[in-house]
Nucleic acid binder design. Structure first.
Lengths: 245, 245
DNA sequence: CCGTATTTGTCCGTATGTATG
DNA sequence: ACATACATACGGACAAATACG
C-alpha cells in the first residue's frame, strides 16, 4: 500500500543508531537526527514528514517523534499545520533577507563586544586566519577556503563569551539553510573579499567599538546583497523560462 | 498521597477553558496557557512542572502536554532535565545581561531599518507618543506610563515590517522575565529619561541610519545598566544579611 | 461531488528505569 | 538498601479531519 515511498524513506537512514544516541533522551536524539537531515538537505524545504513512516524508520513510537518535531518547529526548522502534518520549513527570499539583517545586527554586536575582550594572543590568532585565507584565495582553493572562513566566523562569535549570542547566531544561520535558494546563500558567503575581514580585525585592534560593530555589521550586509542579487537573477531566469519558452 | 500540593496547583487554573482554546490544536492551546502562566509569574523560575498533575488540571492527556513543554523548552522558557522533569527556566544575572545586549543589537537594527520607512505620518504618531509620555512622567503617573512606553516600543518594532525581527525581539523580552530578579528588569525599564526617546525619534527624522541605530542601541543598553546596578545592590543586600546578621 | 483510505490528534494502560528521601 | 514517585517510552485504540480516486 504505502510501499511506493517507504522504500525510499528507509534508505535515507537506518535504524540501530539508537545505541549511540542513548546519551540523551530518545526525543533529544531524534531531534538531533532530524535537525541533521534538515540542515544537510536530505529532507528538503516543503517536504512533508510522515509520522508513522518516520517513527517506523527510527524504530521508535510516535510519542517521542512528535515531541521532537514540536521542538524543531519552535526553533523554526519545521512547520506544523493542524490536521495536515509537519513540513520542513521553507523560507522565502523576503524572510531570508530579514534573517540576514538580524544576523548582521548580532554579528555587529559580536564586534562591539569583542573590543573589550581583545588580547594580543587573540589578534595573533585572527591574523593567522587572515593569512591562511589570503593564501587559499590566491590559490583559488575554494574547497579549503569555505571551512576556514566558517571557522574564522565561529571563532569570533565564540570569543565574545556570550553563550546567548552564540545560540542566537547559530539559530539564524540554521534557518538560512531553509531557503529554497540555498545555493545562493552559500554563493553569497563565498565571494568574500578579504579586505572586509582585515577591516574587522583592524577595528578590533584599534579598540574602536563603533567602528568594529559597523565593520562586522557591513560584512554580513554585503553577503546579504550578494544573495539578493543572485536571487533576483534567479527570478529573472524563471520568468524567461515561463515567458520565452 | 499527592494531595498536599495538588490543591495549590488546582487553584491556579481551572479546566474547562478548552472551548475557547479549541481554535488551534490542544498542544498549541496548552502551550499558550503555559506561556501565559510562566510570563505572568504564576509559575515561578525554578519551579517544577509535574506532568500528571498538570495534565489532570488541564483535563488533557500527557501527550499534548509533553509536546507543549518541548516546544516551550526550545523557546527557552522551560528546562527539560532527563528523567527528572521540566522546570521553569531560571536565568542568571549574567545571562540576563547577555540578553540585554542581544536586545540592544536587534532594537538598534530596528532603528537602522526604520530610517528607510519613515513617513510624516509615522513621525506624527511617534511625536504623539512622546508628548503623552512626557505628560505622564510629569504627573508621576507611572501606572499609565509603563504600558504607553511598552506600546511605543512595540510600535517601533512592528513598523520595521520585519516579522522575523518582531519574533526575535519578543523572544528575548520574554526570556528576560525569567530572571529571578524580575522586579529589577521592570525597574530598569521604568526610569527612562524621555531625552532618550526624543533622540531616537529625532535621529529617525534626520534620516541618519548610523545615528538611529546607535540611539536605539544605547537606549536598551542604558536600561541594561540600570538593571545591572539594581542587581548588584541586591547582591550586596544578600551578602550583608548573611554576614552581618 | 461523494465515498473511501490515509493520517493526524488524542486518549489510555502499562512496563521500565531513574531519582529521591 | 528500599520504597515511592515520577519520567520515559511503548502500543493500541478511535474519532475527526484530510487527501484521493
Amino acid at each position: 500500500m504505502a510501499n511506493q515511498t517507504s522504500d525510499k524513506v528507509n534508505t535515507v537512514l537506518q535504524a540501530g543508531d539508537l545505541e549511540l544516541l542513548r546519551t540523551s533522551s530518545l526525543t533529544g536524539a531524534v531531534e538531533k537526527e532530524l535537525e541533521h537531515l534538515i540542515l544537510t538537505g536530505e529532507l528538503k524545504p516543503g517536504e512533508r514528514l510522515n509520522e508513522i513512516r518516520l517513527s517506523n524508520r527510527f524504530g521508535i513510537s510516535r510519542g517521542p517523534l512528535r515531541e521532537a518535531t514540536r521542538s524543531l518547529a519552535a526553533r523554526g526548522l519545521l512547520d506544523v499545520v493542524r490536521n495536515r502534518g509537519v513540513f520542513v520549513r521553507s523560507i522565502s527570499v523576503k524572510e531570508a533577507l530579514e534573517i540576514y539583517d538580524l544576523r548582521a545586527a548580532i554579528f555587529g554586536l559580536a564586534g562591539r563586544l569583542l573590543v573589550d575582550h581583545v588580547t594580543d594572543e587573540m589578534l595573533a590568532t585572527l591574523n593567522d586566519y587572515l593569512q591562511r585565507m589570503d593564501a587559499l584565495a590566491e590559490q583559488r582553493n575554494f574547497d579549503d577556503y569555505y571551512p576556514t572562513n566558517l571557522a574564522f566566523h565561529d571563532h569570533l562569535i565564540g570569543a565574545t563569551g556570550s553563550a546567548s549570542l552564540v545560540n542566537e547566531y547559530h539559530g539564524l544561520v540554521d534557518r538560512l539553510h531553509l531557503c529554497r535558494a540555498k545555493g545562493l546563500v552559500q554563493a553569497g558567503g563565498l565571494a568574500v573579499s578579504n579586505r572586509e575581514h582585515r577591516e574587522m580585525v583592524d577595528s578590533l585592534a584599534a579598540g574602536d567599538k563603533l567602528r568594529a560593530q559597523e565593520a562586522f555589521f557591513r560584512h554580513v550586509e554585503r553577503s546579504k546583497r550578494r544573495f539578493e542579487m543572485a536571487a533576483e537573477a534567479d527570478a529573472r531566469e524563471d520568468e524567461e523560462k515561463r515567458d520565452g519558452r
